[in-house]
């Protein structure tokens, strides 16, 4: 048996897939490839694959990572070669590593994501070049920011800066801006990039309009040393 961690794209074509839809699309792609996979025992056998995150509907990702148990002895290149011809557009295999027998669940170790959130400038300042350092300053320099997080189950107050530790950066492209934000994903929760966008717009006066498009640039493992590693980096296994 070979245990692999593959990086797969979640491109524009797959933007509107929920996590479960995406997982099913991956499973079906693997089945089409003819790779002989390990399945769970029981009434309803499931292909043994697991993901780095539950990527929400509406968000594309540079790479989503999947751990898979292949019954045969295979190399990453062989798996890529098998998957590529049966991958739908937007779900291309990118890279991978062979894993040791015992690894921690990716969901448990991936604790940092970098998002690019794109949207239009507020109507009132269209055509102007915004001083983004200044516009983002009060948010970036704040020690704590209270935010009322509303979920279908409950409403609670969280500290946004607990999750968004690094400064948000902006890159203006004509009348659009891309905000790059790093967000921590912890046991106690996280904050969605769209929530940060709206919070900035309504409470920090960011000159942006309310519609946005989200792309996840990276999902990473922040080690105790403070450095961030790719899930493919052997030091995270």
């Amino acid at each position: 048996m070979t245990r692999l961690r593959m990086a797969l794209h979640k491109g524009e074509e797959l933007r509107y897939l929920s996590h479960l839809d995406y997982a099913q699309a991956v499973a079906r792609m693997i089945r089409r490839s003819g790779l002989s996979m390990a399945y769970s025992e029981g009434f309803n056998p499931h292909m043994k694959i697991s993901f780095s995150s539950a990527l929400a509907l509406g968000i594309t990702a540079e790479a989503e990572y999947v751990d898979m148990d292949v019954l045969a002895d295979v190399t990453v290149e062989e798996v890529k070669t098998l998957l590529l011809p049966v991958a739908p557009k937007g779900l291309e295999p990118l890279d991978g590593v062979i894993l040791p027998d015992k690894v921690k669940k990716m969901m448990a170790i991936c604790n940092y994501a970098i998002y690019e959130v794109r949207g239009s400038l507020a109507d009132s300042i269209k055509g102007q070049v915004v001083d983004w350092t200044k516009a983002l300053q009060s948010f970036n320099e704040a020690q704590t920011i209270e935010y009322e997080k509303v979920t279908p189950k409950k409403t609670r107050i969280i500290d946004v800066k607990h999750f968004v530790k690094d400064a948000i950066e902006a890159k203006q492209e004509g009348d659009e801006v891309v905000l790059t934000m790093g967000i921590g994903i912890y046991h106690e929760g996280t904050i969605k990039p769209g929530e940060v966008w709206n919070l900035g717009r309504t409470q920090f006066g960011w000159p942006i309009s309310d519609g946005y498009v989200i792309h996840r640039k990276a999902i990473l493992v922040e080690g105790e040393d403070g450095f961030r590693y790719s899930p493919l980096d052997s030091c995270v296994f």
Binding site: R15, R28, M29, P88
Partner: peptide
């Protein structure tokens, strides 16, 4: 179809095609 509004309708993948085959 602009993501800015499409992502807010129910199951946008009903309208985007691109499926295998």
């Amino acid at each position: 179809l602009d993501t800015r509004w499409l992502q807010h309708v129910q199951k946008p993948a009903r309208y985007t095609g691109g499926e295998w085959n």
